[in-house]
Nucleic acid binder design. Structure first.
Lengths: 225, 225
DNA sequence: ATGTGTGAAGTGCTTCACAGCG
DNA sequence: CGCTGTGAAGCACTTCACACAT
């Protein structure tokens, strides 16, 4: 990448090269670390010292960052404030994102009030459910529970781009399709089922059941035959 | 694997070959599908028809399964009931596992009552917290909230092997270490922080913040410069 | 001297393609 | 014939190692 002609870091706009999902996830980790460093008053940081914090290779960090431009200073490292700003922009955290949570059960309600989801850059607009008894109420944190039939309307009016699916497995696929039709562009699926995605909608899965079973698998192996 | 000498499927015990984490996760997916098939009364299934359900390659499924023995019948496929039983055993879901949830906040409480976590094979024993006002109460589903200082005692007495970390980032590392010392052998970390693990303790991460930011990243790219 | 940016090598996962069993 | 089990090829991600900028 960027072979031959020098690349203008000032352009602030990376090429459309495909970025691996793993790289993208690490960018979030770097950003989190840079937040801490900035709070601690650290001015510059090297890829090596970043790598030491998590168990990562310094070359990997440099490669990840190099995908988007030349942010480092040879012989010095990266300027914390600058890199932080760049990563924030690259991750698309400068503009605010509105989020809808589909399913006002235990998990949905908890996610609506969960601090980690209300981080700067994200705003939980509403919970949606089909249960009459829940509609009209609010979560403990004050997020309103709306009728799922109003989804398309709210998505359009509030410019919701992200949906979090927190419903039982059976309800997941139809709701996903409904959300996609409503104009949702990214979905985080907590339902324990494999969804059939569609182009134009990014789909990520957090399958708690599989994670737990995975732990059981490792335990079984560790305990031996 | 198993080249030369034929391998006895009847032994029911796989070699100690290293199994990739990705493979292990797919085993859970297969098992879930087999549950459905068995309920639907299907007798046998081919790797191809399994592959069609999720977007997977049939060779991958065969390879995944072949790691643990020869479960298939050439020209026919896999006998649903048999494969299901084998996968259940391989994933260590025959014996019951006791689980402790550390942190009785929004997320911890929701996870304690979440259906997906109380699946056959797992039992949520208790929530643990340090907040006096929470200790002694129970979750809506009836899971008791105990003083975190009693963790080691309960882990020993109730044979808890899995802990779910649902606490703020700052509290995660000390609690993880405490759990490890108490005899916990597997940890599922929801705290938005990179933990320093230790040998003998399996550590899996579910970082909701990173997942959300990842969606934002894809949105930002899709929307273009 | 120090630490980035990056080809090249290394490693591991996925897919192909086919021998061979039922 | 149909489908598994599996070497080999393909592809992707990681790590190495060093030229080169400051």
């Amino acid at each position: 990448m960027n072979r031959g002609t020098r690349w203008r870091p000032s352009s602030g706009r990376e090429r459309g090269a495909a970025i691996s999902d793993l790289t993208a996830q690490r960018l979030s980790i770097y950003l989190r670390c840079l937040d801490d460093l900035q709070k601690a008053g650290v001015r510059t940081v090297s890829s090596q010292s970043l790598a030491d914090r998590f168990q990562l290779n310094s070359a990997q960090i440099r490669k990840d960052l190099a995908c988007f431009g030349e942010f480092g200073i040879r012989g010095v490292g990266y300027v914390v404030a600058d890199l932080r700003e760049n990563l924030t922009r690259i991750l698309g955290l400068t503009r605010n994102r509105n989020v809808a949570i589909l399913g006002a059960g235990n998990l949905g309600m908890a996610l609506a009030d969960y601090g980690g989801f209300n981080r700067e850059g994200f705003r939980i607009v509403a919970l949606f459910d089909k249960d009459r008894r829940k509609i009209g109420r609010v979560s403990r944190g004050g997020v309103p529970i709306l009728d799922v039939r109003r989804l398309a309307e709210v998505v359009r009016r509030e410019r919701v781009s992200i949906a979090v699916l927190a419903v039982p497995a059976e309800a997941a696929q139809p709701l996903f399709d409904r959300a996609a039709r409503a104009g949702i562009k990214a979905v985080l699926n907590f339902a324990p089922t494999r969804l059939k995605g569609r182009s134009g909608v990014t789909l990520k899965v957090v399958d708690l059941k599989i994670q737990l079973e995975n732990l059981a698998f490792h335990l079984a192996r560790a305990e031996g035959p």
